[in-house]
Design a protein around this nucleic acid. Structure first.
Length: 510
RNA sequence: GGCCCAUUCGUCUAUCGGUUAGGACGCAAGAUUUUCAUUCUUGAAAGAGGAGUCCGACUCUCCUAUGGGCUACCA
C-alpha cells in the first residue's frame, strides 16, 4: 500500500515553542523529506482562553531559524487552506453532529461548574470522577432527555457540549511505530468533549482527527503526552468510517529536565542557565526568556543536538548536517524512553560547529559583534582574527571576550598573570625587549619571532618568562593566541605603546 | 487513586539470545603548547530487583520497584 507521505506539525499558539516542540517538528520534517513527502504547519488555536499574541509568529520564526521548511500550511498556504483551526471553525460542527446522529456522541448540558462540584465530591470520598458510561445516564444529556427537551434547551440558548460516547468494556488495539502494539480497555476511558457551544469551537480531539483526515495526513508524529488519547482517536476514525485512510502514529519520548524528574519547562532553563526556547521570547506580560539564537548557538548545532536526543543512527557518527539527518533518520531508531537534556553536550555540539566554520562564515557572524562594541574593521581583518580564535570559542557570543585585545589595549591587568610575571627581572627584561622590538623594520609575525627568539637565546632568558610578560602587556591576561599573532595584528607602534602602558601603570609585584 | 508508557556508565546511547557490554558528553591523569584554549593518548564509570523460558539472557515472559505521561468545556 503506497501512500503519499504527508505529515504535520500542529502546535498551539499558547506561548513560545519550546525545544521539545522543535524536536517534534524536526522529526516530522526529516521524515517528510526522506520520503519525498509534504510537511504541513497547522496552528491549533481551538482554545480561545489560552491564546497568546505573538506565539504564532514566534513559532514560524523559530522553524525558519532551524532550517525546518514548511511546504503547506500557515504562512505558505496550500490546497487545504485555511490551516489555522480558528479559521476552519464552521467545518467541525457538521462532523460533531454526524457523530451524534450515528449514536457515537451526545449533547451534554452540565456546566463546567457543576462538573467541578462533582469532581470535588468524588475526591472527598477518595474516588475519581469520570464522565463515562457509569454516570452519563444520570446527567443532563441527550441520552436521557427527550428530543423536545434537547431542542428547547438548545434553542433557548443553554450552553452545551458534544461528548464522545465511549463504549463500555471494549478492547482497543493500536499500533505505534515506536512502541509497537498497545491495547486499552475502553472502560478506563471517559467521554471526552468534542465540541463546545460556548465558543463554537471543537476541542483538540475532534479538530485533530477531522483535519488530519481532510488534509490527508499519512503519519502523525507527536509527543508521548498524546499516547493516552490514542484510543479515543482510533475510535473517532472508526466512528467516522475513516479507518481505511487512518494515519500511522508515532509517539516520541519526552525531553526531561537535566536533573530530577519531569518534563523540561521554562523555569528549569532559567534556573540552570540554558535556554529551553530556540529564540529570545518576550511575553505580552513583559516576561522574557532566553533563546538559543541570542545565546550564541548556531542553528546547525542546535538541530544536530536535538536530533540526537531520542534518535541515533546506529553508527558512531555524531555530527550531522540537515541533509545527512534527512538521509539517515528513521522512526524505528527513535528510542522509547525519555531523554534528559544535557547542557554540556549542547555546548560541545556548538563548539564543534564553531571550529568547522570557514573564515568567511565566521566574519559574517563576527562583524555585528564588533560593530556592537564600536569596532569598525575590514572583513579581511575580522576574518583573520575570528579564524585564529575560533578554536577557543564555544558560542559566537564568546568571540568578543576572546578577541577584544586585538582592538582594545588592556585597561587593567589580570591579577594572576601579574603576580606570576610582573616581578623579579621581568620588568627590566620587558624594557630591553621594547628596544629590540623598536628596531625591527619588518613587523610580520615570522620575522618578529625570528628576531625576538634569537635575542632571547643570546641573552639566555627564559622563553616562558619573556613571552608571558609580553602577554601581560599586550593582552592584560594569561590567555590568547601566539604572541606574534597579536604583535603583527596590532602593529609595531601599538605594541610599543602597550608595553609603555604596563611599564608606567603597573608597579612590579615583589 | 486509576490508566498508559518506559528502565544499559552521572548524562545521551550501541547491543536486535552467545561481546573483554562499544561510542559520545562530562570527569581524572598524561602528552603537545611561550599563556589560555584546541588537539591527542589513557583511565574511572552501566545492564533496577526477583522469578521464570532456554545449553546460554542486557536482550524473551511475569511480578515488584522506580521514573515519566495522561486523568479539563488545555493542547
Amino acid at each position: 500500500m503506497e501512500r503519499a507521505v504527508r505529515v504535520r506539525f500542529a502546535p498551539s499558539p499558547t506561548g513560545p515553542l519550546h525545544i521539545g516542540g522543535v524536536r517534534t517538528a524536526l522529526y516530522n520534517y526529516l521524515f517528510a523529506r526522506q520520503h519525498g513527502g509534504v510537511m504541513i504547519l497547522r496552528i491549533e488555536d481551538t482554545d480561545s482562553q489560552r491564546f497568546v499574541p505573538g506565539a504564532e509568529a514566534y513559532i514560524m520564526e523559530s522553524l525558519q531559524w532551524c532550517g525546518i521548511e514548511i511546504d503547506e500550511g500557515v504562512g505558505v498556504g496550500g490546497p487545504h487552506a485555511p490551516y489555522r483551526q480558528s479559521e476552519r471553525r464552521e467545518i467541525y460542527l457538521k462532523y460533531a453532529l454526524q457523530l451524534v446522529e450515528a449514536g457515537w456522541a451526545y449533547y451534554a448540558f452540565d456546566t463546567a461548574e457543576e462538573l467541578d462540584v462533582m469532581r470535588k465530591q468524588a475526591e472527598t470520598k477518595g474516588e475519581a470522577f469520570a464522565y463515562n458510561y457509569a454516570v452519563r445516564t444520570q446527567l443532563a444529556t441527550s441520552l436521557v432527555l427527550s428530543t423536545e427537551e434537547v431542542k428547547t434547551r438548545i434553542e433557548r440558548g443553554d450552553q452545551w457540549v458534544i461528548r464522545f460516547r465511549m463504549p463500555e468494556n471494549e478492547l482497543v488495539e493500536m499500533k505505534d511505530l515506536i512502541r509497537g502494539h498497545v491495547e486499552v480497555n475502553t472502560s478506563t476511558l471517559d467521554d471526552k468533549v468534542l465540541y463546545k457551544s460556548a465558543d463554537a469551537l471543537p476541542t483538540y480531539h475532534l479538530a485533530n482527527i477531522v483535519d488530519d483526515h481532510l488534509m490527508e495526513v499519512s503519519h502523525v508524529i507527536r509527543g508521548e503526552e498524546w499516547l493516552p488519547s490514542l484510543p479515543l482517536h482510533y475510535l473517532l476514525y472508526k466512528a467516522f468510517g475513516w479507518e481505511a485512510t487512518q494515519p500511522e502514529f508515532a509517539h516520541l519520548p519526552l525531553l526531561l529536565k537535566p536533573t530530577g524528574g519531569g518534563k523540561l519547562s521554562k523555569r528549569d532553563g532559567d534556573k540552570m542557565g540554558f535556554p529551553v526556547f530556540p529564540l529570545f521570547w518576550t511575553a505580552p506580560t513583559g516576561e522574557t526568556a532566553h533563546g538559543y539564537r541570542e545565546d550564541g548557538y548556531l542553528p546547525e548545532a542546535f538541530i544536530n543536538m536535538l536530533a540526537l536526543l531520542g534518535w541515533n543512527p546506529g553508527t558512531e557518527q555524531e555530527l550531522f548536517s540537515m541533509d545527512e539527518l534527512i538521509e539517515n533518520f528513521s522512526l524505528d531508531r527513535v528510542s522509547k524512553s525519555g531523554a534528559r537534556f544535557q547542557p554540556e553536550k549542547a555546548h560541545w555540539f556548538n563548539a564543534q560547529y564553531m571550529h568547522r566554520k570557514t573564515e568567511a562564515e565566521l566574519a559574517t557572524l563576527y562583524q555585528p559583534i564588533l560593530r556592537a562594541h564600536g569596532i569598525e574593521v575590514t572583513d579581511v581583518a575580522a576574518r583573520h582574527v575570528a579564524n585564529i580564535m575560533k578554536e577557543r570559542a564555544t558560542f559566537i557570543t564568546d568571540l568578543w571576550d576572546l578577541t577584544s585585545f586585538f582592538f582594545l589595549a588592556p585597561t587593567e591587568y589580570e591579577e594572576k598573570q601579574s603576580k606570576k610575571y610582573w616581578k623579579g627581572a621581568n620588568p627590566d627584561i620587558l624594557r630591553e625587549l621594547r628596544t629590540v622590538l623598536a628596531t625591527i623594520t619588518d613587523f610580520s609575525a615570522e620575522h618578529t619571532e625570528q628576531i625576538v627568539h634569537a635575542w632571547i637565546e643570546e641573552k639566555g632568558y627564559g622563553m616562558g618568562q619573556v613571552m608571558n610578560t609580553l602577554r601581560l602587556a599586550l593582552v592584560g591576561a594569561g590567555k590568547g593566541p601566539g604572541m606574534y599573532e597579536v604583535t603583527s595584528f596590532i602593529g609595531q607602534a601599538e605594541t610599543l605603546r602597550r608595553i609603555d602602558n604596563l611599564l608606567t601603570n603597573l608597579k612590579p609585584i615583589e
